[in-house]
Amino acid sequence: MSNRDFAPKIVAFCCYYCAYSAADLAGSLRLQYPPTVRLIEQPCSGKIDIRLLLQAFEAGADGVYVAGCLEGDCHFLQGNIRAKKRVNAAKKILDKIGVGGERLEMFNLSGSMGPRFAAIATEMTERILRLGPSPLSTADKGEEGKAE
């Protein structure tokens, strides 16, 4: 698949108090960002666990990011710090098995940062476009090819 045909699937786990509001704001401001990002609202970025991140990749995501509040501003005090640690642990797993930890990232922003939300969506999309489709989806196609 050439890069031109590749429309990445990116899952964004967004904290309700910051990134999700920032996404609303980006919409109100009529900011354009790539339609590659699927938002999943979370009560806090600290709700994220490694299992959920891996599940997203298994279910076909080419990239995943967690967007939480600015450090020091978490509504639940430390949720974003804990999320960062779990994201880092999941990155190691993805590196180890060959999916690639680069496909997963943690971002911090506040609810008032609509333009930053759009910039993060663009940045992550560009990164995944550069990396290409997830090796897991390529492996799927390989299996289908074998079946044929």
Partner: peptide, 21 residues
Amino acid sequence: EKEAGIMASTLRMQRKLQGEP
């Protein structure tokens, strides 16, 4: 339960990438 889930998911993904699902 959580660690079992992580391990199972990691195992499935790696084996898929190795062509031995």
